[in-house]
Design a protein around this nucleic acid. Structure first.
Lengths: 203, 203
DNA sequence: ACCTGAACACCGTTCAAGT
DNA sequence: ACCTGAACACCGTTCAAGT
């Protein structure tokens, strides 16, 4: 009721865009649909997002990224913190599966929104004896791994229960496995990666 | 000259679509553009790709995937083969950077096109003493890692030399590092991951 | 200042019609 | 059998006009 008359703002536009994307995917996120969500005409949006659709989608990425950054508590222990980084990242992306592909395609926006977190991770890793160069590489490796994992996860989910469609027994096994234990595979991969990184501590 | 009169076929349509995507991105890959590439009207495509644009894009993913599968020589040594899998995958995706995001969003098509390869990898890993369950997990972890890495790489490239745009010194460092050594970071991450997996051999 | 109607140059896709 | 013209219901975006 009263919210109907709330004035438009950049934040409200971006929020509405995220709501539309969560509900109907990126395909369904037209300027007209976002405007409809706000009870307004499409052309009104351009006053609050002058850069048009691109700027609006950048805003959505930044918003999801902020959600994850704020949920992540750091302890100063590099291994615990890198794990928290990856797990909270995956959790935020799982809440917005349709946004994952957008984040992957907008690394600049993503990095910008998580500077503080990444900076703290660097410190923890250097304290633990990593070379600065390796700390830089490790953060990129883990964050890309997390995005790649969550992306595959989100798409496999979307593809649905195709497992029994395949005539190849191996594929049936792979896809059955996929739909059964995403959490297990995530933890398996994350721990393997962290083990491999730990072996690279140089001091 | 003579190719102008070659009859249309599913394969020629998919080839043309890949050419358009490589040149102008997914955005630029309209049915009209692909038809133009073939000197034909948009509506003609539907006779060879009855499923429309979606089926055409599935075909593009399968074609790039096949390119990578055929380039990958296996030795029977799990670690060498897993490395070859990841490196050749990255190489094929780097040749078609605009296709990476499409592959990530179509895991079913991707798996279907690489069954033989994945099957051989499983055997090699079981021979090396991995539990079957861990071999399944490892293949998914490495393939998603490779996609995630290449995706970030392709997008960072596209974003261009934004490094000096940032006011935050940490971001400048991260982005400078990004544009300098993608190969180094890839090898660093891949070896760390393989080390972590190797530690999980159970026999 | 903030919103909008009409218009422009595009989309993917259908369907009846041409050869 | 294979290709196409015209048409439909959509896009993102601009711009002049309304309040």
């Amino acid at each position: 009721m009263s919210t109907d008359r709330e004035p438009l703002s950049r934040e409200r536009v971006v929020e509405a865009a995220l709501a539309v994307i969560d509900r109907s995917g990126i395909q369904g996120c037209s300027m007209r649909a976002v405007a409809g969500e706000l009870g307004v005409e499409a052309m009104s949006l351009y006053h609050h997002v002058p850069g048009g659709k691109d700027e609006m989608l950048d805003g959505v990425v930044a918003m999801v990224q902020t959600e994850f950054v704020e949920a992540t508590d750091l302890t100063g222990d590099w291994r615990a913190d890198m794990g928290a980084f990856s797990r909270e990242y995956r959790a935020a992306l799982s809440r917005h599966p349709n946004v994952v592909a957008m984040i992957a395609a907008r690394p600049a926006v993503a990095y910008r929104s998580s500077t503080v977190l990444v900076g703290a991770l660097f410190s923890a890793m250097e304290d633990a004896g990593f070379a600065r160069e390796d700390a830089l590489r490790a953060v990129r490796v883990v964050s890309r791994w997390t995005i790649g994992f969550t992306l595959g996860e989100a798409s496999a989910l979307e593809d649905g229960e195709q497992a029994d469609e395949f005539d190849e027994p191996l594929l049936v096994e792979v896809f059955t496995d996929i739909s059964r234990g995403e959490d297990d595979v995530f933890e398996f991969g994350l721990e393997a990666l962290l083990d491999g990184l730990e072996a690279r501590i140089s001091s």
